[in-house]
Amino acid sequence: MFNWNDLIFFLELARQGRLLPAARRLKVDHTTVSRRISELEKDLSLKLFDRKPDGFVLTEPGHRLFAIAERIEQEAVGVEETIQAAPSAPKGHVRVASMEGIGAFYLAERFAELAQKEPGLVVELVTERHLINLTKREADIFISFVPPQGQRLSVRKIGRFRLALYASPDYARRFGIPRSAAELPSHTFVDYVEDLVAIQPVHWLLDVLEPTKVSFRSTSMHAQQNAVARGAGIGLLPLFSAKTNPRLLPVLPDEVIVMRDIYASVHADLEFMGRFKAVLRHLAEVVERDTALLTEL
């Protein structure tokens, strides 16, 4: 008979793909993870992982066990919530993934609010340029501008945000401000690095024009905003970030209006569990509360 506790090590290694990250998540030495996996494979008489140069990859039996182990995990985590007479305060870690811009300029402060309300929760905010795979448990919750694809995902649109053109006073003094959209092609812009755009809807300047004159490009929205504020050119920036910098001047605010949806996604197995439900509820509430901040100049 195998040791049920070995499934914890199996799940974490399957999700992380490498011993050291799995060990850090489990707060043990990497040799402990390796030993427990070896013991599990011996007890089941199955090879669960192929050892590759770049990490551990599930075998076919490993994939079958992973599906079973996840169900066991969800049942185990839900025991406390199910049997308690009164629901307890949510507690534990929740990993939220999102794009760098909205993560740094908007979500971080809102999660600080959540920490005050729910001190038992620890949110881990991970920023990525690509779409997170919730099916592979790269994160628990994903905040994105496009609905992700994957098996057993619960995806909900929780709001919208607006983007507007901005320039700095220095740029306005040197080059003037366009008086209509027809004048935009003659101006200089700040933009994304085209061949490194992982999610096309993030390359939002293309909703307005494809600039012929670009003075600065970056994969970081934060870097773009700083460059615009220093006079490098005109940039299309989300209101939630641009409003934080008094050196930014709106350009054609009544003529150029670009909108993006905000989606909150979670694996279906986690959706109704206390700590994940608390984070999702908080996100929906603050986005609704901040409608004016997100959409109005």
Rank of each mutant, 00 (worst) to 15 (best):
I83W: 12
V57T: 12
P178F: 02
D191Y: 01
A268Y: 01
I143C: 08
P178G: 09
A67N: 11
D6Q: 12
D170K: 13
G233Q: 08
P148Y: 05
V146D: 12
E81F: 01
R25S: 13
I141Q: 06
L26H: 05
L248N: 07
G120W: 06
L283N: 06
L252Q: 10
A242E: 08
L44T: 06
Y192C: 08
G274M: 08
P61R: 04
E81L: 04
R152N: 15
K277T: 03
L205K: 07
V96C: 06
E113F: 06
L293Q: 12
A69G: 10
E81I: 02
Q74P: 00
A181F: 01
S98I: 04
H187G: 01
D290M: 09
K243I: 04
I8D: 14
F10V: 10
R71S: 14
E113M: 12
A69Q: 07
E128T: 15
P119L: 10
S220Y: 09
R281F: 04
V228C: 07
L40Q: 06
A85S: 13
Q225R: 12
I83E: 11
S144F: 01
G274L: 12
I257D: 14
A23Y: 00
K117Y: 02
R289P: 05
R95A: 12
L165N: 04
V279Y: 03
L134T: 10
D254A: 12
S180I: 06
S154V: 15
A292W: 09
L252N: 09
S218F: 03
P148R: 11
D29E: 14
T291K: 14
A85G: 15
F272Y: 12
F66K: 09
L237H: 05
G235D: 09
S154D: 13
I37Q: 00
V28I: 14
T244C: 02
K47A: 11
E138Y: 01
N245E: 15
P246G: 06
F276G: 00
A181E: 15
L196M: 13
V228R: 02
D269F: 02
I72R: 09
Y192M: 13
M273V: 08
V33T: 05
